[in-house]
Amino acid sequence: MLEVKDLHAYYGKSHILHGVHLRIGKGEIVSLLGRNGVGRSTTIRSIMGLVDCAGSVRLKDEEMVGLKAYEIAHRGLGYVPENRDIFPTLTVRQNLLLGQKKSNATGRWSMDNLYQLFPLLKDRAETQAGFLSGGEQQMLTLCRTLMGDPELVMIDEPTEGLAPKIVEQVAGLFEEIRKRGVSILLVEQKLAIALDISERLYVMGHGQIVFEGTPRDVRENAAIRKEWLEV
């Protein structure tokens, strides 16, 4: 589905990614772990075409490096930014509409569909998104990206700062996404969630992948957890 090879990224003169390799299969949930500042967000922003980068990102055997972000989105990649980048002055419904790449597009997810999964968003459909709570905004950001019917969705820190009950809901949505045949690349700080739902994991350190394995490998390998994950 997605194959990243020797990806280098730069913010101005600073070199952030030093040759990242990773791959994600169809319908797979893969997590990208690591401490703050190791380049996890930069990795998915580079894949999405939002950062200057060099190397190779192939989606369904087509090269993405060099394409614009909106072209990459049309090829089937979805991106859920951290910080819940909702459009605060638009209503919840308008936010969702902007997730569609074309008006009247149909795909795995319809607005009614998402309203069923999250009745709260339906109740707030005509409210300006800026007035939603943090958890509601996170749901909206996720649902907005799903409206564009991506085949692989990259999600940056979805549970940061959320109450445990909402975290549960988010995890439930991931399960639903997987059921519909969509792959997930998850950047997550909370080790427990990542280990619970992922099929495979990558651990990053200093702008490189330092470990690749299954959740079981990470659970059993205390040295990796100590060196690269635990604070």
Binding site: Y70, P81, F87, L90, L97
Partner: peptide, 22 residues
Amino acid sequence: RIGLVIQAALTHPQTVEALGHN
């Protein structure tokens, strides 16, 4: 729709682009 895209791009141009808008 184009009006909504403009309003959204006023605050978050990169996010709008990542959603597939030119």
